[in-house]
């Protein structure tokens, strides 16, 4: 069983970092929503607060949208790369098999 590789190629590395971002995002958003109210409730309760929360809200929606898009793309890239590796291996194996098969066929003609 192959061990986990020590270093990842670019596509998988990027996908994992994006995954990290997806884990951090809820924490960041929770902090941004909760902290101002604990910190300065009087300032945040009225018009300024409305502007802050709705602005933050819109930013979070955009962030999730961008993150999901990037993650889906990174996933697709990784999948393609994996598929390419598998395909290459399969072709190599097929070529080898064909070669061996040819030789065997020649032999069976040669020997009598």
């Amino acid at each position: 069983m192959p061990d986990r590789p020590l270093f990842l190629e670019r596509a998988s590395f990027r996908r994992r970092r994006l995954g990290d971002a997806a884990r951090v995002l809820p924490v960041v958003s929770a902090l941004l929503v909760l902290l101002p109210v604990w910190w300065m409730p009087r300032l945040i309760s009225f018009a300024a607060g409305a502007a802050w929360f709705f602005g933050l809200w819109a930013a979070l929606i955009l962030a999730v949208w961008a993150l999901h898009r990037a993650l889906l793309r990174a996933e697709a890239v990784t999948l393609r790369a994996e598929a390419a590796v598998v395909e290459a291996a399969r072709e190599r194996a097929a070529a080898q098999a064909a070669e061996t098969g040819d030789t065997a066929a020649r032999d069976s003609h040669g020997a009598f």
Binding site: A22, L25, P26, S29, V33, W57, L60, I61, L67, L71
Partner: peptide, 9 residues
């Protein structure tokens, strides 16, 4: 909304 920011995982 906060839960949805963690929708991915």
């Amino acid at each position: 909304t906060i839960v949805c920011t963690g929708a991915w995982w």
